[in-house]
Structures are given as C-alpha cells and as structure tokens.
Design a protein around this nucleic acid. Sequence first.
RNA 1: GCCCCCAUCGUCUAGCCCGGUCAGGACACCACCCUUUCAAGGUGGACACACGGGUUCGAAUCCCGUUGGGGGUACCA
Length: 471
Amino acid sequence: MTAPASDGASPIRVRFAPSPTGDLHVGGVRTALYNWLFARRQGGVFILRVEDTDEARSTEQSTRAILDGMAWLGMHADEGPFFQSDRTELYRAKLAELVASGGAYRCWCSKETLDERRAAFEREKKSFRYERTCRGRTEGPSPDAPFVYRAKLPADGEVVVDDLILGEVVTDNRELDDFVLARGNGSPVYNFCVVVDDIDMRVTHVIRGGDHLANTPKQIHLYDLFGVPRPKFAHLPMIHGMDGKKLSKRHGAASIMQFKELGYLPETMLSFLARLGWSHGDQEVFEVEELQRLFDLKECGKSAGIFDMKKLDWQNGLRIRQMAPVALLDRCKPFLDAKGLDSSAAWLPRAVVLVQERARTLVEAVNGLTMFFDRGTTVKFDEKSATKFLTPANRALVAELADCLAPVEPWLSPDLERAATAFLAERGLDMKQVGQPARVALTGGTVSPPLFDCMEVWGRDVTLARLRGVV
RNA sequence: GCCCCCAUCGUCUAGCCCGGUCAGGACACCACCCUUUCAAGGUGGACACACGGGUUCGAAUCCCGUUGGGGGUACCA
C-alpha cells in the first residue's frame, strides 16, 4: 500500500467477475486473488461483480458460495458485490445507444436457421460465421417477428490485444462474427454486459482467466463502437488437475469451500494459489501482506499449471507447525464441535502441542486429538499391534513400569521419562524394548505422539489403569 | 475442421527480454542420520531445457517447422 497509483489522477480499478453457475473453484479464486493483490499493490480499487445474466444457469446457492469463499479468504471488495441482474436498465440504455449510433442492428434469423447454416458449413468442413444476413435490413419478415441485436464489426483489418502477460495477440477481423449482444427476449449477453459494466465501473485493468482470451477481440470492438478507450488486459493461464485435465472433485477438491472443510487454512490457499502462476525468485511461502507488497503481473508465467495437492499439504503443515498452539486449537474448534467433542477440555492445550507437528490439515490435527477424548481405563487394541508387542513377558514388563511410574510427582512428561529411564537402567533394558509395548497398552496402537507426553495428557489414573490392565 | 495460446526435473518454478552459469530452488521420491513409534528436523541422491531445422564461434535463451497440451468456435459465462 506504499506503492503509488499510476498517476494519482486515474486510480487503478480491477474487478473479479465470476458467474454463479457452480462452486467457486480454485481457478476462480486465483483470478480473484491476482486482481485483489494487483489492486492492493497499486493502491487501486477491487470490485466484485456477479455475472448472473444467464437466468437458466445462475443459482442463488452459487452466489452464496462465491460470497462465502471470498469472505473466508479475507478478500474483501472495495466496491460491490454488484449483480448484473440488477443492472438491466443500464444494458438496455447502452444497447439503444449503440443502435442509435449504428454500432448494433437487429437480426431476425432464427436460431434454427442459424443452426442449419452452421451444419451446412460443417459438412463442407468450413468454419461458420454469421453471414450478416440482416445487416442491411430495417424490418423483419413480419411486424412481430422475434429478433436479436448484433454488433456491427469491421469486415476486415485486425485487432490486437496488447496483453500484459501474453504480449501482443493479433486477430484477423475475418475470424470474428457480428455476435449477439442481446437475446430475443431483450436480455443482454455476456460479451455485451462485461463491456458495458467495465466501462461503467471505470475498470482500468481486466485480469481474467485465459479462457476469455478469445472473447477479447470482440470486446475490444465494443469499446471502439462505444468510442471509449480500452482497458488493459491480462490473461492468466489455466489451472489443471494432477492428470493435466480440467480440475474437478476427482482431484481431491475443486471448490474452495471444500478446502475449508478439508482443514486447509485460508492463508495457505492464498499463498499457494499466488505461487501457482506467479513467482518471486525462489520464495515459496508468502504472507498476505507480502503478497500485497510484492505481487506483479510481470512475474506471471504464461503456461498452464497443475494443482499439486502434495505441495499444498506441505505448506499447510508448515503453517500449522509455525502457529501458536492456542491459535491452532482455536482453528480446530469448529472441527471438534462438528465431531461432538468438547473443545473446552482442560487437557486440550497440552494435547494440541503433540498433534501440531504431525498434522498437515486441521482435520488431521483433530483426528490426532480424538484419541485423547477417550478417558476410559481400558482401550481396544489394534489386533496386529497387540499380537506383536503384548507378549506375556512384555505385559509383565509394562505392569512393572506402571508400578515404577505410579509415585512420580508431578505427573509431567520429563519426570515420567526420568523415572522410566531409571527403571530401565536397573534392568539393563533399552527404551526400544518397552516403548512399543507400553504404547500399545496405553493407546491401543503403535503410532502416537511421544509416550510420556501422552501419559501426561491422560493423567495418572488413566495411564496406570491402562498399563496395569494388560496383565 | 478452423482460430488462438502454451511448452525447463513427476509437480510448482528461476534462468529467456539483453545468447556463454556444473540449468538454481521448492514439493514429491530414494538413502542415510537423529529417534521409544509416527511425525518434524538434518545430510546426501536420482530427476528437466518436447522434437527437428536454422542463425551464431557458442542456443534452454533468437527464428521457422513438427509434435504435444490447453482454450475458443452459442440467443453460456
């Protein structure tokens, strides 16, 4: 926020413009993030605009998902959220303006006719473009014949998109259609709404997914038709799943809220997603403030990326380990509550520490915590572990250990370990020989946090009962 | 089919613009160390310039082609 805007007179304005036709997935989140970071870095304005002009596909639930996701990640809009469905008046007016200036015209060709023409072209292996049949017409076949509005594009020449990431992308105007601006029922179509809104909202930089690159030439013509300057464009490479295909639930998760449920931290998502497509030297992990200070479109790559869950896990684990234990516990609470576990248990702060360096997600942390909620004096043994370690001789040894631990005061891990070490020394035994049997006796299995730490969390009574319970 | 975009380890990437480095880092992987188990940590290792032509004394870097991947081709966004 120390970086100055371009010239003070015209502050940078960017927008994230998702359509509420499904979950907010990581690709969309990254687009939002880059816009947001760009705005923050440049001291600009970040706008959120929901593109819900497709009544058939837009749902309130998806809108909710977008808003919830943005809130969870802490990406707050400076302006908006705006909804295109609230702005139909504006589109109507701008369309009329374009018609008046000759930039748009009515087309009475039915969808069926067009489909037929398209099929005919396909049969001849030629690419179809609207043939501009109605370009000169002033009235339809009948007074009440339905029509759409189309943009009047130049028949030749070329458009060049000077993309901030990709460089110059030149398109021959002959590749372009007189595309539809508004449907037969008068409702405007995407390519028209974006441009009208971006003009109206004074958007200076359009930063969006690469799937929009092909739309850009058309949109540029609209800017020209309106006689207003074009914004700058930046098209981000796409994100794919581990198999190189489009990201979906098969890859673990796609929707941002799924990551929340899986126990990933929002700051991990931000840092990780920022780094997928952008880099700053060799740095791998970024705090949000750093991103806001460092993010630069010039450091964005052009090639599509693959979302690597393993690396996400690593970074999330890293952050969990670096967190203050109380903070971690706090983050775990919703998950604890969801499992019906008492998140106010007195021993929880001590247990969290044990689980902290072993968890990569909050879910894993809570799973690690779960066994401590069992305060019973007996445990169910894991079959294999019991067979292997709870031999008659070992059972006796564990019981003896219990006797030697019984008087330890205070009941703290270091004191317990000291007592156990002495016990072992007396018998010329090694920790290796009692460790696992005792662990199985105490926890039921062979994997757990350090033995004496566990004993401390369970307390004297539970621990002794379990150790002695094996004979 | 046509148009467009992209191309460095399995993955994210640095290097490319302004040709000359043992092509660097991170995740994952393997080995070893640490160790009461699991983690964490430490050390080491294997691993890439898609291919083919140019240009050049010299190409991952510049140019062309091929191949591969992706996007678009709607009265979707």
